[in-house]
Design a protein around this nucleic acid. Structure first.
Lengths: 217, 217
DNA sequence: TGTACATCAGTGAACGCGCGTTCACTGATGTAC
DNA sequence: TGTACATCAGTGAACGCGCGTTCACTGATGTAC
């Protein structure tokens, strides 16, 4: 799982620009990026910056600077800063979803698989703290991002499906929803407390807490 | 419990300045505050502002403005902005601790009392979101605030004591710590997910989830 | 193959903003004689 | 009781900062004839 986590994160943070490309910053931007590539490069630099600072401290100008481009160039690819942040969120949500799926699969489904998704959730949070926090800040009520849904709620749908696999056969819809919320709260709290340094980010702790979900029936 | 919560929050947010005091802003500040009162007024305005915006969006200048005082006056009472924020944290920590104690007492101790502290935790978070988040952001590793401890870790000490009351007699130290972390994670995750709008801030949900703590043995 | 032209992703200068913090100051308060 | 003086919590002007965003522009690319 740890390996597959690393692989997934490499996907998210993949770096198309080599160090050489950075050192020939003198050439103009159009020569450096083929058509459509700057958008991608900005997202990548944004994700890299989120590894260094919080989303609140991430500025559009710095992302542009890192990509070797003027601040105004960003506006060719995003209507405003918020839209750029949202693009970063989408990457985070994708990574979260993929990791959950991979963890479930690797553990062979059932209760073990369900536990694995919980552990993967915490590990993703610890691996990409700012992105994880940013992701959570996109509320369903902030409907200007997506028509009527959260990015996270997609992962939540998966969670409700997964929780069914860990519950006894005849569990009701209500029981499933309740168990899903319970499980999500548990791993989310663990992740946040570890991110905030209130609890040691201990591997064994993640594994044990995440497999102690209270399941009704 | 709800009543005692309201009472406690009134304590935290108590407003010593009447509306009249605000309307006679023309008089100079020295006339308005007796010696030492401005510090208190600044803290109160800070807490009120935290009810409107996040700690990140709270500026020293605005706190001063609300208190009817120049921005530089703040420096007579706090060495810098961070110190002022920390003073707000202290209030939050105090409120959290008092609420936990009150909840435990009101529920008559034992497992019921322990569950009540969990519910109170979530309710405090929902009542004062920004203050709660700010409180959590004070890390043990940021030792410049307190010598070698977190503000929150004081509440954590209480938690470990409380969890013992809900555990079977012969529980080991390890089991107690583990159960405390588990319980904290559960209610903290529930609180954060509700604050972020990922889960409805439903009263019944708080009560039921917070009493489903997994207890070993 | 060469020329004219439209497109559009980049540019740098400029805007107004609010911030945290510093500085030299002022004027009310309280004490010493 | 009156006067001289130290204290110190306030003041407003000023600083430098980086931000998001706008504007008119430029110059490479690709297409049409």
């Amino acid at each position: 799982l740890t390996v597959s986590l690393a692989t997934r994160l490499d996907d998210v943070y993949s770096d198309n620009m080599s160090a050489d490309d950075n050192s020939v910053n003198i050439e103009n931007a159009k020569a450096r990026y083929h058509h459509g590539d700057l958008r991608e490069a900005l997202i990548e630099e944004g994700l890299k910056l989120l590894a260094e600072r919080s989303a609140d401290d991430l500025s559009l100008r710095e992302v542009a600077r890192r990509a070797g481009v003027s601040a105004t160039a960003v506006y060719r690819h995003f209507p405003d800063k918020q839209a750029m942040l949202f693009a970063l969120c989408e990457r985070g949500a994708r990574a979260l979803g993929e990791m959950q799926r991979a963890a479930m699969e690797a553990a062979g489904g059932g209760k073990a698989g369900f536990d694995a998704t919980g552990q993967a959730y915490v590990r993703l949070a610890l691996a990409t703290p700012s992105l994880f926090r940013l992701l959570m800040s996109v509320k369903p009520s902030q409907g200007h991002f997506t028509p009527d849904d959260t990015l996270v709620s997609e992962a939540m749908r998966d969670l409700r499906r997964n929780v069914a696999l860990a519950l006894p056969e005849g569990a009701s819809e209500t029981q499933r929803t309740h168990a899903a919320i319970h499980a999500w709260s548990l791993v989310h709290g663990l992740a946040m407390l570890m991110l905030d340094g209130q609890i040691p980010a201990d591997e064994a702790l993640i594994d044990s807490i995440a497999s102690e979900v209270f399941l009704p029936g």
